[in-house]
Amino acid sequence: MGRDVHADDEQLARRAIGLLDLMALNAQDTEQRIIGMCQRALTPLGAVAAVCVYPRFVLLARTTLDRLRTPDIRVVAAVNFPYGSANIESAASETRAAVMAGADEIDVVYPFRTQLCGDQQTGMDLVAACREASGPNTRLTVTLETGDLRDPQIILDASRSAILSGADFIKTSTGKAVVSATPQAARIMLESIAEVGGQVGVKFAGGIRTFEDAKVFLSMAQARFGPHWVTADRVRLGASSLLDDLLIHLGVLAPGPYGNSY
């Protein structure tokens, strides 16, 4: 008897909801938008993994989620975002402030331009400084902006540097670059994670808008490490617009411009 592909897809789509990091990372974001995102984070099919905001919105996001009685949804603070400055003290200072405001996780953009110039040490020092500033109980994501790094060897070097310097997750993209997440970059990052026995997680972000997009990356993670590895502790999907597509795919939302009012 053959496998039920539809049932497999439905199971994967449901799982994907619990792997989502919803993001509000636009300059024009308002308090109302942050509150609205936190409300969307608790879906009819369960909660997403996290919401990701600028440090100035961390306290609001945490307070809103607690009022909604969803303490397990994590608040991620994006620091050194989106340009990946090489200013180590600035990134560390942002990290400390975000943790004090209640961030559960820090997402720091790797200084990818210095890496492109052949300077690997600055990136390692910046990640290490943010690792120290975040403390032992706050998980650290390092966003590599792989679309700008481009070269497979440079992506591999940056992935290894981030892991060596204390990353808990490595992430494909800020979503602000011209080229975002690609299967090639994801494959290289997964390989670097395999080098440390799968003890570091991966976040796929940038241009992932549909279930079919997400399925490509989730299938790669499952193929490399097995389905039991694909949990919110090891895999995330940084993609706000993906949520509606997943809910439409699962029959919770109707397609169309008014479909997102569940």
Rank of each mutant, 00 (worst) to 15 (best):
G2W: 04
F57Y: 07
T182E: 00
A133C: 15
T70F: 09
F169Q: 08
A177C: 09
P257R: 08
V142Y: 01
I163L: 14
L164I: 11
V108Q: 09
G207A: 13
F204Y: 13
D244P: 10
T63A: 13
L12Q: 05
Y54L: 15
I188P: 02
I154F: 12
T43H: 10
P255K: 04
R33V: 07
A128E: 14
L59V: 14
L60P: 12
D245L: 00
A47I: 15
A133M: 06
L65V: 08
P111I: 11
A61D: 04
R3P: 08
E89F: 04
L45K: 01
D8I: 06
A103M: 14
G147F: 00
L116N: 01
K215M: 13
V202K: 08
R15M: 14
S134M: 13
L149Q: 00
C130V: 15
E212G: 12
W229F: 03
L250R: 09
F204R: 04
P227F: 05
D72T: 03
E191K: 11
L164P: 03
S240G: 02
I73P: 10
V142W: 00
G18L: 02
V202N: 01
V200E: 05
A221K: 08
E145M: 05
L12K: 15
L140T: 14
R3W: 08
T182N: 12
S161Q: 05
A167P: 03
A194S: 08
R113N: 09
T172S: 12
L140V: 09
L65R: 00
R3E: 15
D29Q: 14
G259L: 00
F211N: 12
G201P: 01
L237K: 07
D72Q: 13
G198I: 08
V235E: 02
G36W: 03
L22R: 01
V108T: 15
V51G: 08
A61R: 10
R96Y: 01
P71I: 13
I163F: 10
E191F: 06
P44A: 04
R160T: 12
L19N: 02
R3Q: 10
Q153W: 08
G198A: 05
I73Y: 02
G18S: 11
E94Y: 06
N26M: 06
V109F: 07
G102Y: 10
A221F: 03
G197D: 01
D29Y: 00
A232R: 05
D104H: 14
C130W: 01
T174C: 01
R160M: 02
A47P: 15
L149T: 02
D66G: 09
D72M: 09
L60E: 07
F225A: 12
L247V: 11
P71M: 03
D233Y: 00
R139Q: 15
L164G: 09
G197Y: 03
G198F: 09
I106Q: 13
T210C: 06
Q184P: 03
M37G: 05
R56E: 15
G226S: 08
R3T: 13
R131V: 12
G175N: 06
G201L: 01
F217M: 08
E31V: 07
D213Y: 09
L253E: 12
I163T: 02
T172P: 00
D9F: 04
T174S: 04
I208K: 03
A86R: 11
I154C: 11
A91C: 01
V235S: 09
A129K: 04
G197K: 05
D148C: 15
I155L: 04
A16D: 06
